[in-house]
Amino acid sequence: MRDTLLEILEEIAPTVDFENCKTLIDDHKLDSLAILSLIAELEDAFDITIPTVEIVPANFNSVDAMAAMIERLEAED
């Protein structure tokens, strides 16, 4: 899952160091438009729905945070 996530992220923002950056939103590495692309791609790739309540900086600041959110949404009943 992590590999697919990284693939999507690198396609959306090719110049960002996703492996090491933990402040993707706080440091404006991903802006609001990139988040719109990301949500559409993640929902499609992982067959999940990312509700509005999940669209907060803490869930998109790092690859780990995004992976944790995806896992949580996949496991949700």
């Binding site: 959306i12 990139a34 719109l36």
Partner: peptide, 9 residues
């Protein structure tokens, strides 16, 4: 990547 998601936005 820049102008693509702009329409929905």
């Amino acid at each position: 990547n820049y102008y693509g998601p702009m329409l929905a936005g």
